[in-house]
């Protein structure tokens, strides 16, 4: 069996969340020696884990050292690599935005149109260009151009970019923002229409390797099955409820009347033995899957139709007839 190297971020904002996410998907990663950059995934023995810097993950995937990787969508878009295919771009963690931010004192600047005008003012009145500090030069350049800002100098900086306007080596910044606290603390404000990338963690793969090797593709499918099922499962809860009624079909009818309590296919109903009442009614236990956001509405409806003793437990996985992400990957790899 071909072994598949999966590159994961070793440090940075999405390193820990990635391990937590994989664990939630039933894909726990074990790192036998904390000082080494390798690990294993007991649930999928064909996978070897390689820890890399967030930025390097995609380079390892692009050059084929790793066949799969998890990293931020922002870096994938910034350092676009020909042979990298985005397998799953909605892993629901590691959220951040790449935004244009200006000093708070610029009370006249609220949007990109204002900024375009300020860039012109710099040029016409100060005879110099607007200086933009960023570690994302490509996306920044593109974004500024599409907003009519053509006269600017990019100041490449590593880390502590938020301080650049205060220190004075740049006028504005383009940086990743999670909560905005760091910006505020450095007296900067993001521009509302200045969001360049809305990023989160994503799973990427080496296009050639996936297209050529059925074994690598199979390992990828196993990972995606787990990931899709876990992401699906997050949104739902399993409920059991006891209801008294004439017979199973009578109860089924009542429960199914409300789309909320119909479950994914329909209610599962089981009789509770020895629970017949004097007026020939019987108790049943109903099991349904309910979207989390409608849980309380479901509870209230079930009460209305006589339900009681309701239990709710989280759904860890929902496997559909096949993994939707894997279907998308196949379509991307083999267009015919």
């Amino acid at each position: 069996m071909t072994r598949v190297m999966l590159a994961l971020p070793s440090k940075g904002a999405i390193a820990e969340p990635t391990l937590a996410f994989l664990q939630e998907c039933g894909l726990r990663v074990e790192k036998p020696n904390p000082r080494q950059y390798v690990g294993i995934m007991p649930a999928v023995p064909t996978v070897d884990v390689l820890f890399q810097r967030v930025i390097d993950v995609q380079y390892k995937v692009a050059d084929g050292t790793a066949k799969l990787g998890i990293t931020g969508l922002d870096v994938v878009q910034e350092y676009h690599q020909e042979d990298v295919v985005i397998i799953h771009d909605d892993l629901h963690y590691g959220y951040c935005k790449l935004v244009v931010a200006v000093p708070e004192a610029w009370i006249d600047v609220e949007n990109m149109v204002d900024l375009a005008e300020v860039a012109l003012d710099f040029r016409e009145m100060k005879n110099r260009q607007l200086r933009v500090a960023t570690t994302y030069p490509h996306k920044t350049r593109q974004f500024l151009h599409t907003h009519g800002i053509h006269h600017f100098t990019l100041v490449n900086a590593e880390g502590a970019i938020e301080a650049a306007p205060t220190i004075g080596y740049a006028d504005i910044i383009v940086d990743l923002v999670q909560t905005g606290t760091t910006l505020r603390e450095n007296h900067l404000k993001p521009l509302a229409d200045g969001v360049i990338i809305e990023s989160q963690a994503c799973l990427i793969g080496n296009r050639t390797a996936l297209a050529k090797s059925p074994e690598i593709l199979e390992t990828t499918r196993i990972l995606l099955e787990q990931i899709d099922a876990a992401l699906q499962g997050r949104n739902f809860s399993q409920m059991t409820v006891n209801i008294c009624g004439k017979d199973a079909s009578d109860i089924a009818q009542k429960v199914a009347l409300n789309p909320l309590t119909r479950g994914l296919q329909g209610p599962t109903i089981a009789p509770i033995y020895g629970s017949k009442t004097e007026n020939d009614l019987e108790w049943f236990t109903i099991t349904i899957i309910v979207p989390n956001k409608s849980l309380l509405s479901a509870v209230e409806y079930l009460r209305e139709i006589g339900g009681t003793q309701m239990t709710v437990s989280p759904v860890r996985c929902i496997f559909l007839e096949r993994s939707p992400s894997f279907a998308r990957l196949q379509a991307a790899l083999f267009p015919d």
Binding site: P103, A105, W106, D171
Partner: peptide
């Protein structure tokens, strides 16, 4: 910020290479 900008006449330059006066003028 407004008060700061009006009050501190000495302050010739604020963050981002634009002076108080420039910002107010454009405002």
């Amino acid at each position: 910020i407004f008060q700061m900008m009006f009050a501190n006449q000495e302050m010739s330059s604020v963050a981002g290479g634009r002076s108080r006066q420039e910002i107010l003028q454009r405002f």
